[in-house]
Amino acid sequence: MNELLAILLNVKPVIGAALCLTGGVLALIGTIGVLRFPDFYTRLHAASVTDTSALTIALIGMALMAPSWLIVFKLAAIWAFFFLTGPTSSHALANAAHTAGVEPLIGERARSRGRGSSS
């Protein structure tokens, strides 16, 4: 039983680092989406991947590497703060764009324009 615990304690930082790397890669994927998608509203969707999954996974990874519970609490505070304010700023962005009259691309048009200006 003690050996199992020792193995777990040794493996924990490695899992944490792997989860951090996963979070970084997810942030990269979200950025690629932001660069590829054709108009503002669709880019908002890609950016929310970074705001939710990349953040959650990277913070869980850091929590596994944390030396003390105080650090875990700080990570949890960052996570809760982002999940409470992230949708607010996303909605503020979408609402401001809608109020200013930015028209979303609907349906097939988005697809063809996305292919044209994907670089």
Partner: peptide, 21 residues
């Protein structure tokens, strides 16, 4: 303008992660 604000906001999220890492 909204694309730029979105990008800056997203950069902020990533910098928070980068600082932690």
């Amino acid at each position: 303008l909204y694309d730029r604000v979105l990008a800056v906001n997203s950069i902020g999220t990533k910098i928070v992660l980068l600082l932690g890492v």
